[in-house]
Simulated assay, not measured.
Amino acid sequence: MTTLSFIVGVIGNIISVLLFLSPLGTFRRIVKNRSTEEFESLPYICTFLNSALWTYYGIIKSGSYLVATVNGFGAVVEIVFLTLFLIFAPPRTRAKTAILVGLLDVGFLAAAVLIAQLILNDDLRIDVIGFLGAGLNIIMYGSPLTAMKTVVTTKSVEYMPFLLSLFVCLNGGIWTFYAVLVADYFLGVDVCVY
Rank of each mutant, 00 (worst) to 15 (best):
T3Q: 13
L4K: 11
L4T: 13
S5C: 06
V8H: 09
V8G: 01
V10M: 10
I11S: 02
I11P: 04
I11H: 07
N13E: 14
I14L: 10
I14P: 02
S16K: 02
L21K: 00
S22R: 05
L24H: 07
R28D: 01
R29M: 14
R29L: 14
V31M: 13
V31F: 09
N33V: 10
R34V: 00
R34K: 15
S35N: 03
E38N: 14
F39R: 00
L42E: 04
I45L: 08
L49F: 15
N50V: 09
N50K: 02
A52R: 06
Y56F: 12
Y56V: 03
G58T: 09
I60C: 00
K61W: 06
K61D: 00
K61I: 00
S62V: 11
S62G: 15
G63L: 07
G63F: 10
G63R: 03
S64M: 15
S64D: 05
Y65P: 01
Y65N: 13
L66S: 11
V67T: 13
N71R: 02
N71T: 00
F73K: 00
V76S: 10
F81M: 01
F81P: 07
F81L: 09
F88K: 01
A89F: 07
P90K: 14
T93K: 15
T93A: 11
R94W: 09
A95C: 04
T97L: 00
T97G: 01
L100H: 13
L100P: 01
L104F: 13
L104G: 05
L104R: 06
V106T: 12
L109S: 09
A111C: 13
A112R: 06
L114Y: 08
I115M: 12
I115F: 13
Q117P: 03
I119T: 11
I119Q: 08
D123F: 10
L124P: 01
L124Y: 13
I129K: 06
G133A: 15
I138W: 04
I139W: 02
Y141D: 02
Y141E: 03
G142I: 11
G142Q: 02
S143T: 03
S143Q: 03
S143F: 03
P144C: 01
T146W: 12
A147E: 07
T150V: 11
V151D: 06
V151G: 01
T153E: 11
T153A: 08
T154C: 01
T154Y: 02
K155D: 10
K155N: 12
S156E: 02
Y159P: 05
P161T: 05
F162E: 00
L163N: 13
L164H: 05
S165C: 06
L166W: 04
L166F: 14
L170N: 03
N171L: 05
G173Y: 01
G173D: 09
I174M: 00
T176I: 15
T176A: 14
F177T: 13
A179I: 04
A179S: 11
D184S: 04
Y185L: 14
Y185E: 11
Y185Q: 12
F186S: 10
L187K: 05
V189D: 01
V189R: 02
D190P: 00
Y194K: 09
